[in-house]
Amino acid sequence: MAMALKLEPEKCTGCLQCEMACSYENEGVFNPAKSRIKVFSFHEEGKFAPYTCTQCEEAWCMHACPVEAIVVDMATGSKNVLEDVCVGCKVCTIACPFGTVNYEPDSGKVIKCDLCGGDPWCAKACPTGAITYVDEADTTYERMRAWAQQAPSAPARFNPPKPKEVQVFER
């Protein structure tokens, strides 16, 4: 049975447990900035929306990769970044129209959701059932849309440039 993350914004309280679990399990730190799932706040409506890669069939990121560093996990259907192959060119980050592939300046690589190999920690950490890992047929983005249309902060974050080490010559 194909499984997928089901995201139900109306159940989300914005507690960010999913972000903490994701960053800890995947990056070894409790740092929401390194989470592959993000909770967006819609303060005007007092609502929250967890959002991450939908493992979409088009796989824009995978097809845009120039070095075959994004591959399909045959077991889960997730599109995974092979960290040792990724050169950090960032083309996948602009190719993904959902904005769910991020460049990580510390590693010089990109990161995205890989469903934790079929046992996603965000779903396990969610206390309200807003994120569940269920039969793919049971995930409907219609619900997401219906909710989002009534609605709308974790703003898109800027990163300060992180200087790379070069030799500076006296002029």
Binding site: K38, K90, C92, T93, I94, A95, C96, P97, F98, G99, T100, V101, N102, Y103, P105, A156, R157, F158, N159, P160, P161
Partner: peptide
């Protein structure tokens, strides 16, 4: 300097 969710601009 925008690296997070930058692809959403395409979307």
């Amino acid at each position: 300097g925008l690296t997070e969710h930058v692809g959403v601009l395409r979307g």
